[in-house]
């Protein structure tokens, strides 16, 4: 360079601004998808704001007692009885039936997806996969009716068996021998409902297991089961966890089916075989028709709590998926 010595003393140039002129079609497309993205955010925000606005008075009246109090009493203005609203029992009930559902659905779903990926004969794979996916298409009220009329009589028998042989474990104990409409049965119905979701997600993950690792395991003399344990499950754990959390979220929000098969009671009950349970979503449906204006606000507040919990579960799902994705692969 001719005047290199001069250049050496100059400061480096400022970085250039790099731009591109998008085409018209590109700009339109960008507008459309941006609108789509923001719409979903907006809807989410508006729902939360609506629930918070309508429920604010209740939160202000009861404070944290709204969450911890088990009693839901609409009050009687004529008799001068003040309303006392609390969703503690329903909150506990929601968590109990969702965990029961998850405990039943998770092993079944993982087993089903392993079967569909590694064991099923080729000609059965497609039809069975479609069948499992179709389970998700059945309306929840149908699950509820089926649960009430078909499943419950059998489930009561299983519940009695569980109680007879495992009754010494506190959760399988019952204060009274009433086994109908218990959290166990509600959880069973919910399990059937969330199996397709968890199965579909696990299966999706299992099909992505790198073939070279599968082959490496087989080439070392692995049996199918030991290959699955060493390669498939570590690889798929994050996906399974994510699917389980999605299922949990769905189970927590499920309304009609639970309403039909669960005996709502405003008491905290951890005896899952006993006919007494709770579910925020079902309670809202239950109370909605006959609620006084103030009670209605309470129901909105309950909805907000449920909304917050499912959001939290989904967030946790994300966290788990990301953490296992980092270390597990």
């Amino acid at each position: 360079m001719a005047n290199g010595s001069l250049l050496d003393e100059q400061a480096p140039p400022l970085p250039r601004e790099i731009t591109t002129q998008p085409r018209f079609s590109d700009r339109v497309f960008r507008l459309v998808i941006t609108a789509g993205g923001f719409t979903s955010l907006l809807v989410l925000g508006l729902i939360a704001a609506f629930l918070a606005y309508r429920g604010l008075e209740v939160f202000r009246t009861f404070g944290y007692h709204f969450i911890t109090n088990y009693k839901w009493d609409g009050g009687n203005p004529d008799a001068g009885v003040k309303p006392s609203l609390g969703i503690g029992a329903m909150l506990i009930g929601t968590i109990v039936i969702s965990l029961v559902a998850l405990a039943i659905a998770l092993p079944v779903s993982v087993g089903a997806s392993l079967f569909l990926t590694y064991y099923v004969p080729n000609f059965l794979r497609k039809p069975l996969t479609i069948l499992v996916d179709l389970m998700a298409a059945i309306p929840s009220v149908v699950y509820g009716l089926w649960g009430f009329f078909v499943l419950m009589p059998h489930a009561v028998y299983w519940a009695k068996l569980l109680h007879k042989y495992l009754g010494w474990i506190p959760v399988f104990d019952v204060p009274l021998p009433i086994f109908e409409r218990s959290p166990f049965i509600a959880g069973l119905v919910l399990a059937v409902m969330i199996i397709p979701i968890i199965t579909a997600i696990s299966r999706e993950v299992f099909t992505q297991v790198p073939l070279d690792r599968v082959q490496a395991a087989y080439a070392l003399g692995a049996t199918r089961w030991s290959m699955i344990r060493a390669v498939v499950l570590p690889f798929g754990s994050s996906g399974i966890a994510g699917g389980a959390m999605l299922g949990l979220g769905r189970a927590m929000g499920e309304t009609v089916a639970v309403y039909l098969v669960l005996n709502l009671a405003y008491k905290a009950n951890f005896h899952i075989l006993f006919s007494s349970g709770g579910s925020i979503a079902s309670m809202i449906v239950n109370k909605f028709g006959e609620a006084s204006p103030f009670e209605l606000k309470g129901l909105m507040a309950a909805g907000l709590v449920l909304f917050a919990i499912t959001l939290l579960v989904n967030y946790l799902a994300n966290l788990i998926v990301r953490r296992t994705a980092r270390t597990g692969r």
Binding site: R213, A216, A219, L220, A230, V231
Partner: peptide, 15 residues
């Protein structure tokens, strides 16, 4: 396969 082992084209340790 225990008696006849194999090493593949692409290194494939279990991550």
């Amino acid at each position: 396969r225990l008696k006849i082992g194999m090493v593949f084209q692409k290194p494939n340790p279990f991550p």
